[in-house]
Simulated scan of single mutants.
Amino acid sequence: MAGASLVCLLIGLLFLAVQVRSIFSAQLQQEYIGLVLEAVDRAESARDAVAVLANAAKTANAASAANTANTANTANTATADPNPAPSDAYRLARLELTDRLATLDALVNASPSPAPPLPRSVLSRDANFTAASQSLDAAASYWRAQREAVGAGMRERISGVADTLIVLSAIVFGVLVTALGLYAKRTRQLAGMSHEFEHAALHDAMTGLPNRRRLFAALEATVAAGDNAGKLAVLYIDLDGFKRVNDTQGHRIGDEFLIAVSRRFRESVRTGDVVARIGGDEFAVLVTRFDTDAELSAIAERLIACVAQTDEQMGLGLVRASIGIASFPDRVDDYWRLVAAADETMYEVKRNGKNGFAFAQRMR
């Protein structure tokens, strides 16, 4: 689509260039026609002056002939000239007409486009007035028709340019809208990919649980928000006997167990608590709202039950859980040490028989 739009845009621009050039050419032609018509107007004015003087001369001759008739019975002492000599004004008017016709002929011959020339016979000083007048009328009609034709062509080209600009504007607008749509789509794709990358960086690929990095980020965010009445706890979980599952049943069964127990962990904790897979068969739960150790003990018992239920469902008879619990600020005065304290306590549980939980000793 973008390629087709670009081709249409280039064709439209080429068409515009041709039309604009034609309009400039027509404009020059119009200006030249205007010069010719100005010469025509001057020649017509000179012709009208000659005609007026000729009519005046005829009127004077008619009056002179009447006076001669009234005195015809005299002794013929005087005889009127039937063709009196033309007056000086008439001769000057004919010279003016001849000059105007010569100027008009020069402009016609210099026209950039072919045009009918004036007959050579009407350009001399003794040319027939009637023939000169007819030639002038013909030239006037031709050049006025040319002005109308060129003007109509210019208007048509200007209309074509306007239509083309509208079409090109629509194409450009369409291309811009398409580009913006593609940009928005690409931005959404990149945002989705960024979210996927961020999710992958903060979550365990197999179980979908938050990883160690996400656990510490949640821990810091909870402390920064200050909406937990200043109390936090971490329950560190290790699956007793899980290595024997991988050794005897294979890693596929081991992976299925981890996925199943992770799902049970998520379902057993409260909304707002964070279950994370630390790595291998070790998990941690961040508890953000509690009042007493009894609440933490209840959570630990549910987590141990989750492991036992998963083991029973899969018919393994091998896996149980050891849990260490560390709380801030009751037992640990630095919340960054919660995970480490809970981990150490979990190992104490494992050394003391496994399949149970214990609270960390107070650390100051």
Rank of each mutant, 00 (worst) to 15 (best):
M1F: 08
G3P: 03
A4H: 13
A4C: 09
A4R: 15
L6S: 11
V18F: 04
Q19T: 10
R21T: 08
I23R: 03
I23N: 01
L28N: 05
Q30N: 11
Y32E: 08
R47C: 11
D48M: 01
A51G: 02
L53P: 00
A54W: 06
N55L: 12
K58V: 09
A60V: 06
A60W: 06
N61P: 02
A62C: 04
A63Y: 03
A66F: 02
T71I: 12
T71R: 12
A72F: 13
N76F: 05
A80K: 13
D81Q: 09
P82E: 08
N83Y: 11
P84A: 15
A93K: 00
A93M: 04
E96W: 01
L97A: 11
A102F: 01
L104I: 10
A106T: 15
A106R: 15
V108N: 07
N109G: 03
N109H: 11
P119V: 11
R120V: 01
S121T: 14
D126R: 12
T130D: 13
A140Y: 04
S141L: 05
S141E: 12
E148S: 14
G151K: 01
G151L: 02
G151E: 08
G153I: 04
S159F: 06
S159D: 03
S159G: 11
A162P: 02
D163T: 14
T164K: 10
T164L: 14
L168C: 11
S169T: 14
I171A: 09
V172D: 07
V175D: 15
L180P: 01
T187H: 12
S194N: 15
H195D: 15
E198K: 14
A200F: 06
A200W: 07
A200S: 15
L202S: 13
L202G: 08
G208V: 11
F216K: 12
E220M: 11
A221M: 09
A221I: 04
K231R: 15
L239H: 09
F242H: 13
F242K: 14
N246I: 02
T248M: 13
I253R: 14
D255N: 13
F257W: 09
R263M: 08
R264P: 02
R266A: 11
S268H: 05
E282I: 05
E282D: 06
V285D: 01
L286W: 06
L286Q: 05
V287H: 02
D291I: 07
D293Q: 12
L296M: 01
E301G: 01
R302F: 00
I304R: 15
Q309V: 02
D311G: 03
Q313M: 00
Q313W: 01
M314A: 02
M314P: 06
L316R: 03
S327I: 01
D330H: 08
D334M: 04
Y335R: 12
R337V: 01
R337F: 03
L338P: 02
D343N: 11
M346F: 00
Y347F: 09
N355A: 15
F357A: 08
A360L: 04
R362P: 04
